[in-house]
Design a protein around this nucleic acid. Sequence first.
DNA 1: ACATTATATGACCCTTAGTTATTTTTTATT
DNA 2: AATAAAAAATAACTAAGGGTCATATAATGT
Lengths: 215, 215
Amino acid sequence: MGISERKEREKQQRRTEIVNAAEKVFFTQGFKTATMDQVAEEAELSKGTLYLYFKSKEELHFAINMRAGDIMYEYFSKAIHTNQNGLENTRNIGMAYIEFVKYNPKYFESIMHFQIKNVDDFISGSEYFKEHKKKNPLKLFIGVIEEGIKDGSIRSDIKPEIISHTLWAMATGVFQHMSSKKLHMMKHDTDKEIDPEEYLQSFFQIIRNGISHEK
Amino acid sequence: MGISERKEREKQQRRTEIVNAAEKVFFTQGFKTATMDQVAEEAELSKGTLYLYFKSKEELHFAINMRAGDIMYEYFSKAIHTNQNGLENTRNIGMAYIEFVKYNPKYFESIMHFQIKNVDDFISGSEYFKEHKKKNPLKLFIGVIEEGIKDGSIRSDIKPEIISHTLWAMATGVFQHMSSKKLHMMKHDTDKEIDPEEYLQSFFQIIRNGISHEK
DNA sequence: ACATTATATGACCCTTAGTTATTTTTTATT
DNA sequence: AATAAAAAATAACTAAGGGTCATATAATGT
């Protein structure tokens, strides 16, 4: 009896359509000012139906955040090259992160939004999110660090999970800082007090060598 | 005619009282769930009066954020010792930042909240905020870095403003990451996957030496 | 004593997230 | 094919809270 399977598929489909609509509305209007009625209109559904699929506006936002994670994961996967060592691949991931932020500023905004919050409640509260946990960019990154420790390109005195978490947080902090200061990582607004190009270079340099003078 | 001066003082006083009340309410209820009526009640004023002093709930929140900046500034000032070099003082500031987050988690939350947003509109929109710009922790930090470059303890190939901005963003990213994951920098919750102690140590080590294996 | 200005009030408006009684559509049963 | 049962969708409704405004009170100036 393939009916329940088909129904499940259709349910998934609706969910996706709703997230599509929400994305459009949230990204153009901004999450705070966007209304659920607007999302309903865009999705060509009634507002009540939205709440059949998502518990709240925030949960709908979180669904977009999950997408952001997936897209970031794709950027990272493509950036990792098996013929390069761990340190090189760390830089590759860094560059991939930059590209992601550059071309998906709205998705990054969503990531920033949930960076602050404790997200566990969302995930544990919804079956959909629980099984979606797979594509974790951070996990990918931990792998690269482990690789780097093995091949000798990355220091071995700190646990790989700790290194990757730290670098991850650092990178997010830097991009956040840039993004909130509207240093768009784009060429055309160099008339700011901080040159984004220089800023990023500094980030990479510090990561590599630390701030100590001694070589 | 000292009347206008006294009136200005009283106005300032009211403002402060309102911020006190808002702080109490926001910090106990959380900013989102707290209501302006609650703040009015706490301040023993009518809601309308609040809007005579602050344009919006968000601006009131921002006033708290300014306080957070002041308090952080105090932590930093006390941490800097003129008999130590720039690199040592950088670490001192790092430790001070940790202390600040540890003992003022709510203020730090406020800082995180505005870290994401573009804050320029707030400042330019209010005379009060414009003149309050003085106590900037970041400025203090830039001075320390400059000192470090002069005394030879910090690398000189990156501009001091860039270094400090980068480290600043990195640190904020790390503390944010810890805070959102509820790794409270406190001893008593070590049963997490990441040990906060280890995390912070890693942060300092990476800052010092970079991730490269070569010494 | 009176006029004028500054400050404070609280009832009111309006938007919007979320709910629920009702209807429509789909599936199962006879 | 007709009907019962279940699932999905609707739209009118509610509640809450941010922000406003006509009105009142207090302080200052003349």
